[in-house]
Amino acid sequence: MKRKVLLSQKQLELTLDRLCHQLIENHDNFKDTVIIGLQPRGIYLARRMQKKLSALLKGVKIAYGEIDPTFYRDDFRTKGHPISPSSMNMDNVTVENKNVILVDDVLFSGRTIRAGLDALLDFGRPKKVELLVLIDRRFSRHLPIQPDYVGKRVDTIVSQNVKTDLKEAGDKSDGVWLTESEK
């Protein structure tokens, strides 16, 4: 299988640092801001960013939650098999009247984000919702959804896959790859 590096471990680290600084530009001290990671992969990025932001802001506590969009998807019965759900973790966080930053790894059709937004709204009415993605596969959207913060924009075709490797998720090393689907 052909693999092309989109982001190396070092680039990934730098990209996350930059995204954190962009967030601070817009959200100041994060008093009314909540970071929400989208299951399954977005949560690891969101956790990293929460740590980085906390360090950059000298120990300020960043409100953080995790949402699983599985039960809100519109395609779980058309794929031929149900999609396995992951856990939600919204116990210690409220989104009511907050600025919410949704974090996910790859933005492709926009359907996951649509489902994630529906899931989010079940926990309250945020003041504002922004979207942060590590990789934006532009020109491939099925829905009018665009990110507010982007790690890297890539042009891909449908037969290609973008894979995010993260150590926390059990992968060997960090990095983002472009692969050709085997068909």
């Binding site: 039960f71 998807r73 899931a119």
Partner: peptide, 8 residues
């Protein structure tokens, strides 16, 4: 949860 419903 407070909203005990999903649209699956």
């Amino acid at each position: 949860r407070p909203i005990k419903k999903v649209p699956s």
